[in-house]
Amino acid sequence: MYQVGNLVKELSDKHGRMRESLMPILQEIVQKHNYLTDEAMVEVARELDISAAEVYGTASFYTFLDTQVKGKYVIRVCKTITCSMKGKSDIIQTLEDMLKIKIGETTTDKQFSLIETNCIGWCHKAPAILINEMPYTELTPEKVSTIIKDYMQK
């Protein structure tokens, strides 16, 4: 859990308080804190003067606007056909072994979350993953393990 503090107010000043401001505000909260807490969504509803159900309804529609606890680094492994053909399972196996979690879980220190995602647009360089917003492509178990070690030291 994180404290939203002044963040929602600052973001509302930046993006406005209209309905169309909702997505940019939620996106920026997620960029900063990786997921949306109930408290954050209620606060957004208050700032925009809409019901909290509207905020939750919108947030829960979009896979990148997580309403469940997520780690500092969200690893999204592409599972669509080309990545799946080109070794996605080996990448997942390596990640699960390194992070000691299964797909869908978050490490106890809240550093990493591991999830599968649909096509991220790197089929010609499969298999590919996203770590937060950064794509990593043409992965091998060796390559992905080097990348994760780097993140572990951050």
């Binding site: 997505m23 996106q27 309804g57 919108t58 529609f61 979009y62 896979t63």
Partner: peptide, 26 residues
């Protein structure tokens, strides 16, 4: 620029408009 948030359906034109307007991409 407006950003999507991981919903394939928002490539459908009217769903895309809904999303720009801050709603579910239906």
């Amino acid at each position: 620029y407006r950003m999507g948030s991981g919903a394939y359906i928002c490539g459908e034109e009217s769903a895309l408009f809904e999303s720009i307007e801050g709603k579910r991409g239906e």
